[in-house]
Design a protein around this nucleic acid. Structure first.
Length: 553
DNA sequence: GCCGTTTTCGGCCCGACTGTTTTCAGTCG
């Protein structure tokens, strides 16, 4: 665990403790600080060393001091004092669905209950009966929540690549028979966050009840948590919670904006609305009684005199200010991709697999594809594509679509010079040898660093490529870098490599998520290696250099 | 506790849903 996530976690715990103690606004302040510390691309130590802690959104004098104290001593006196005031089990009560700080505090102070086990005992002993605000249904709810928490510990957030196929199934099921017109997934899924806590679906329909009936009956759905006239919440068989809202068409943009978030982005928009004498909610945007927008997101942003902001960057990290200046970056899009530099064929590859890649690449209008023809696997064994496959690659390589030979080498087996031989190099950071070699790649046609995972693992490789050429593959899973590391790479002037999906199963979500992570990192077309013109990514190093110096990069 | 092209003090998003209520509090997103 890094310093940043440890510090963020501590501030979240402080927020929970303050909540239970009945504080009004401090808890949100600490949570906001925790959120922005978590999304930092830089280590807190480095920020503190520069004296820039207070430039972190949500970090003011008091929290900056606590960060300093934490970095210096490893603990924070204020936090220690709070934990002494509240029994440790109270935090576990807060994790129970439907049970918040007010209730936890009452259990603690009025019943002397200090944790889940004592609460269960109190219910069994009938001690909740007669407590003001606790009827039989509420008591049963708490009992069920306790039992559920015991049977299945909180599942936490789901990696987006695991949520992706589920989301597609739900969409398909609703499209098939629900009478839904517009249908979108909002929430952190639409922002392409690395993990999602739940799924937020949004629809328009003439017949909301029918939509909810269809939704409740989908095979993935285990139980209906709550259902009103406009909103339903269900639990899937895997424990994931899904909210579905049905709204009027003229409200769809407002509802989409509202439920895509993030929280900080929404709060910022509402503040701007207020300052301009407007009111904004999930149904629209209003000046007094007059409705001035809500059918589309563009309408909503326009009414605030902002340009439309792509969902992936709605995190209140400066994008609202950019939109006010009309300076929102034009993020890389699928249609910008000109090629793929890292395609693997199956272990027992046959010439037909090359044909499949070629067909996919033509359909995606790619102009070059790098196929890994030889290399070393994670377990150290070597592989090389069979001769008939190599021949098919050579034969298929034409002028409209060029096929490149790619060699994949482990980090501790890097060749002596760059570029090495005729092949492009993909570097596979070797397990147990996580650090890059001291020798940097050359200034022209650099390697693609792939099969690299985790923020901690990414840092040294970003340093390795700083000032040199090369790119890092971004995308889901433990073998690629996420959007936080991708942002750090972009800040260091290093290009990204985006997965195109060519040669992959059509249901494989790696490509859309890879693009989403790149966008989330703020990548424009110019900083994505495989969105560049073929000339600047050829084997000819001088062409690459010319292209780059001309574009001023 | 944070924050400020109307503020260094006085705000801090706002509505759905539930259970318990004769009008609302708590939770959630």
């Amino acid at each position: 665990m890094s310093t940043n996530s440890d510090a963020a976690e501590m501030f979240r715990e402080i927020a929970d403790l303050l909540d239970v103690l009945g504080e009004k606004f401090k808890p949100e302040a600490y949570r906001r600080a925790a959120r922005s510390i978590e999304s930092l691309t830089e280590d807190l130590k480095a920020v503190a060393a520069r004296g820039d802690l207070r430039t972190i959104p949500g970090v003011g004098e008091a929290i900056a001091e606590k960060i300093e104290e934490y970095l210096k001593t490893g603990k924070v006196d204020y936090y220690e004092r709070l934990t002494k005031q509240v029994p440790p089990g109270i935090a576990d009560l807060l994790r129970l669905p439907g049970l918040g700080p007010k209730t936890a505090r009452r259990f603690w102070l009025e019943l002397g209950v200090e944790g889940p086990n004592e609460l269960a005992a109190a219910i069994d002993a009938g001690r909740l009966t007669g407590l003001k605000g606790f009827g039989p249904k509420k008591i049963e709810q708490v009992r069920a929540a306790l039992a559920a928490a015991k049977a299945a510990p909180p599942s936490g957030r789901l990696p987006i690549e695991e949520a992706y196929p589920i989301a597609q199934r739900l969409l398909a099921g609703l499209r098939a028979s629900a009478g839904a017109e517009q249908l979108e997934i909002a929430g952190s899924f639409r922002r392409c966050r690395e993990t999602v806590g739940d799924l937020d679906l949004l629809a328009t329909s003439q017949t909301p009840a029918r939509v909810f009936d269809t939704f409740s009956a989908l095979p993935d759905v285990r139980e209906v948590r709550l259902r009103g006239p406009t909103k339903e919440t269900v639990l899937l068989t895997n424990g994931l919670q899904v909210d579905l809202r049905v709204v009027e068409p003229e409200e769809f943009g407002a509802a989409l904006l509202y439920s895509t978030g993030s929280k900080d982005h929404n709060v910022h928009l509402r503040t701007i609305a207020r300052d301009r004498g407007l009111k904004i909610n999930e149904y629209g945007i209003y000046r007094g009684e007059e409705r001035v927008g809500g059918r589309t997101e563009e309408e909503m942003y326009r009414a605030l005199r902002l340009s439309w902001i792509p969902p992936e960057i709605r995190e209140d990290r400066g994008e609202v200010e950019q939109a006010a200046r009309g300076a929102v970056p034009r993020l890389v899009e699928a249609g910008d991709l000109t090629g793929d530099l890292h395609v693997h064929l199956p272990d027992e590859a046959r010439p037909a697999d090359v044909d499949r890649v070629v067909a996919g690449a033509r359909q995606a209008k790619l102009r070059y594809v790098g196929i890994v023809v030889a290399g070393e696997r994670a377990d150290g064994s070597r592989f090389e594509l069979p001769r008939p496959v190599l021949e098919r690659i050579a034969h298929e390589s034409g002028t409209s679509l060029r096929l490149e030979r790619v060699r994949e080498v482990p980090a501790d087996g890097l060749p002596e010079s760059w570029p090495a031989g005729e092949d492009r190099i993909v570097v596979r950071p070797t397990r147990g040898v996580p650090r890059p070699p001291s020798r940097k790649p050359g200034p022209t046609l650099g390697p693609i660093v792939a099969h690299l995972g985790g923020e901690e693992a990414a840092r040294p490789w970003i340093e390795w490529l700083r000032g040199a050429s090369g790119a890092i593959e971004v995308g889901p899973g433990p073998e690629r870098i996420d959007s936080v590391s991708a942002r750090a790479a972009l800040e260091a002037g290093i290009g990204l490599c985006v997965v195109t999906g060519v040669g992959r199963d059509p249901d494989d979500p790696a490509a859309p998520i890879s693009l989403g992570f790149a966008r989330r990192a703020g990548a424009e077309k110019g900083s994505v290696r495989n969105a560049a013109s073929p000339a600047s990514v050829t084997r000819n190093g001088s062409a690459a250099r010319t292209a780059r110096s001309r574009s001023g990069a």
